[in-house]
Design a protein around this nucleic acid. Structure first.
Length: 490
RNA sequence: GGUCACGUGGCCGAGCGGCUAGGCUCUGGUCUGCAAAACCAGCUACAGCGGUUCGAAUCCGCUCGUGACCUCCA
């Protein structure tokens, strides 16, 4: 299994050749959503980015265990380690059990991820299902001397940890700087230092999400779940940890500290971070309230949306930018993506019907190599599509008799597009090209197209145009080619 | 204030020292009864100013601008 995949490792600030710890196994952990609200465009980005990674690793022949968590407890509302639990707050607002909230938005997240054609993770652990394990890790960290108790809560002792290890190595932060730069926040008197973070929080009497522990009733700190669940399912050392750039600090930094404090060495080999989706140049996010949910995108029901955008348009839109760049949302950009995607899929239809010749006027193998090079280069999907569009031009040119292809090359080309477009990029044809499966519709269309050809023969253009226009109105496009008429559903 | 990114043609977006992606839009042309699609051709940029180099969008410095993180966020 030859592999030239390079991955940008945030920890090293450079691209590195990917070498799994225990080939052919690969462990991949990705920070999933906190399920207290509808998934939005921002959630789609890591969902799709790591889906492509998952797909590609499997394509290369690795046995991948992909773990993506569901955060359903411990994620606090506001200032460092104070304030409400997000889930509990939402539950109170809607007068529901917290777990009803969790279930509702988890379902919604699953639905949208399925729409986006992402493959389900191998394991999707919930934080609330790993309270025992989290308590065990807290104990370990206490035993190792890197945590302290205060009023029923347990905090991680960053200063102590920093004496032996280096806190801040992932985000490039220095403890001394943090000391002078951390904002003044009220209600933190419990902590020795403002940048210490909670491993376990004491539950106040009114707090509904609570579990018994050696330290009294409480709940786990947000960062802890990822340290616990990643190592539980992938081992104390595993290959890749992904997530959004906004989680880099403090979340992932704390994860490293916790795991290291508990285990004695670092767990993660490659840290990957996807960039943000922006809107008018600003991060799309909950706190700014400028987010558009996936549901709104798919239905077009949002004041900023000029139309609905299909899940595959969203997927393609996201993959047309590199995952480490910001991606700016706009109707124009989405519409361009939609058209580009149509062009790609139209060419795939053409590909199926291509006539072969004695010679090929195009180097299929070179194209294939370029596609692999692109994906191997830190998942450079924009480059991948640039090459695939070069192929589109070739495919259309063959159909227009400007270029030629041999039968063997045609087979290779079909496989190439199948592999890269569907298996690796994870796109799927949503234009109900039910044509193949829906014979009745096919028959009806044949009748209509023949009537139109009849009419055209008789120079009855009024009738032929009427057929075309009416079909167009119901979302079926007629394309006249040299070979005859074809149709396509939008 | 600290840390770190980024600024590319009408728009979106690659690029990591030389051969100047790709998508969308636009303008001509071919094809067509017309249109659509497709094909051919055109438009050709790197925030500004210096520097390094035979050669810079790409490296360095400064200036301006935008953003992210430093509190929850994918």
């Amino acid at each position: 299994m030859e592999n030239k995949l390079t991955i940008y490792n945030t920890l090293k600030r450079k691209k590195e050749l990917f070498k799994p710890l225990n080939p052919p196994n690969v462990g991949l952990y990705v920070c999933g959503p906190t399920v207290y609200g509808e998934p939005h465009l921002g959630h789609a980005r890591p969902g799709i980015t790591y889906d492509v990674l998952f797909r590609y690793l499997k394509y290369l022949g690795y046995k991948v265990r992909y773990v993506r968590n569901i955060t359903d407890v411990g994620h606090l509302e506001s200032d460092a380690d104070t304030g409400d639990d997000k889930i509990a707050k939402k539950a109170r607002l809607e007068e529901l059990e917290p777990m009803e909230i969790v279930q509702f938005y988890t379902n919604s997240y699953h639905d949208k991820m399925r729409d986006l054609n992402t493959v389900s993770p191998s394991i999707e652990p919930h934080a609330s299902g790993h309270i025992i394990e989290q308590q065990a890790m807290v104990k370990k960290i206490i035993d190792n001397g890197y945590a302290y108790a205060k009023n029923g809560s347990i905090y991680f002792d960053v200063e102590k940890y920093n004496q032996k290890f280096k806190y801040g190595k992932l985000s490039g932060r220095v403890v001394e700087d943090l000391q002078s730069n951390t904002r003044e926040l009220d209600g933190q008197s419990e902590k020795k230092n403002p940048f210490d973070f909670a491993l376990w929080k004491k539950a106040e009497p009114e707090h509904i999400m609570r579990w018994p522990s050696d330290w009294g009733d409480g709940f786990p700190g947000w960062h802890l779940e990822c340290s616990v669940m990643s190592t539980k399912y992938l081992g104390e050392k595993f290959d890749i940890h992904g997530g959004g750039m906004d989680l880099l600090f403090p979340h992932h930094e704390c994860e490293i500290a916790q795991s290291t404090a508990a285990i004695g060495e670092e767990s993660v080999q490659y840290w990957m971070h996807n960039n943000m989706v922006t809107i008018d140049g600003q991060k799309m996010g909950k706190s700014l309230g400028n987010f558009i949910t996936l549901d709104e995108l798919f239905s077009g029901k949002h004041k900023l949306l000029e139309q609905a955008y299909s899940p595959m348009t969203i997927r393609f839109f996201i993959l047309q930018a590199h995952y480490r760049s910001t991606l700016d949302f706009s109707n124009k950009a989405l519409q361009a993506a939609e058209k580009g995607l149509n062009r790609l899929f139209s060419a795939l239809n053409v590909l199926d019907k291509l006539k072969t010749s004695e010679k090929s006027s195009f180097d299929i193998q070179a194209l294939k190599q370029k596609c692999f090079d692109a994906v191997n280069d830190d998942l450079n999907t924009p480059i991948l599509f640039a090459h695939l569009f070069d192929g589109v031009k070739f495919i259309n040119s063959v159909a227009a008799d400007n270029e030629s292809i041999t039968e063997a090359d045609l087979d290779d080309l079909k496989k190439l597009y199948n592999d890269f477009v569907f298996e690796i990029a994870g796109l799927k044809n949503e234009s109900g090209n039910a044509a193949a499966s829906d014979n009745k519709l096919d028959e009806v269309m044949d009748i209509l197209l023949n009537m139109r050809i009849e009419a055209k023969k008789n120079k009855d253009f009024a009738t032929s145009d009427k057929i075309r226009d009416l079909l167009n109105q119901s979302g079926i496009t007629i394309k006249d080619t040299k070979e005859g008429s074809e149709w396509e559903m939008k």
